[in-house]
Design a protein around this nucleic acid. Structure first.
Lengths: 129, 129
DNA sequence: TTTGTGCTCAACCAAACGGTTGAATTTGTC
DNA sequence: GACAAATTCAACCGTTTGGTTGAGCACAAA
């Protein structure tokens, strides 16, 4: 399948799945418990959990017939790191541009900052699974 | 379409789109410039940009025939906020459990924390568009 | 050993997705 | 006005996705 980051993002692209994550942040739960609030079959919920699991967002143990679902907080770091990086970079750039413009008060700058520099993109987080 | 958060997450679920965002964090670019590194048609790139735009991640101005693409950093806050909230909550819970277990040294606790509390999930970020 | 409970697997379906080709649109230039 | 450049629109296509129903498996209880 796709790379780790893509799996995480697309797992969270579904509102039901995000809601599950939200609820799991309050504590572990069984499939039945998780399914209860939603108007879909148990099988659909099972599929959602499979998606979350293969994204590394949850893990499932075994406890008799039950399969308690547990939120794996670590994966959030992957996303947070990605977000942080480009969020910060964009703000940095903005700040620098702002400073630049401030330092030359009488210039009528056109729209853009100019053509992009070559290959600013890092190797896009390594694969897994 | 779907809610704002879903659009953002699913926009970033594609590696090409993430790469575009990464590159745009270094400065604005035209569609042609953006398309260059990828082995797909210009139309495909145009579609990707449409997805990013409808997620609010980029904006497009007009400059003659060109349509410079600009990264909108604000939307990242939405995601960061969501992430932060549940990430922190999960870690909090873990810490509390840890403290609890430490405070009663001779207990042989079973796996889970017990059944979930009712309705822990907040209303799931309001719609838009 | 039968029965019930909790969950998953398999097959199917409609809608969305990422890509294509081809035509159309908008704007600067000859 | 004709032409080229930059980009989008439209139709199409194979694959993925989120859902369904129905069967099957693992374990507990009777």
């Amino acid at each position: 399948m796709a790379d780790a980051l893509s799996r995480v993002f697309s797992a969270l692209a579904d509102p039901t799945r995000r809601d599950m994550v939200a609820r799991l942040s309050a504590g572990d739960a069984t499939v039945n418990e998780l399914a209860q609030p939603y108007d879909v079959t148990l099988q659909a919920v099972s599929k959602h959990l499979k998606v979350l699991e293969s994204a590394g967002l949850v893990s499932r143990s075994r406890e008799a017939q039950r399969r308690p679902v547990h939120l794996e907080a670590e994966v959030f770091d992957l996303m947070t790191k990605w977000l942080e990086r480009y969020h910060r970079q964009a703000e940095e750039r903005y700040r620098r541009l702002d400073d630049l413009l401030r330092s030359m008060p009488d210039t009528v700058g056109p729209i853009a900052v100019g053509p992009m520099q070559e290959e600013p993109s890092p190797p896009e987080t390594g694969e897994s699974k």
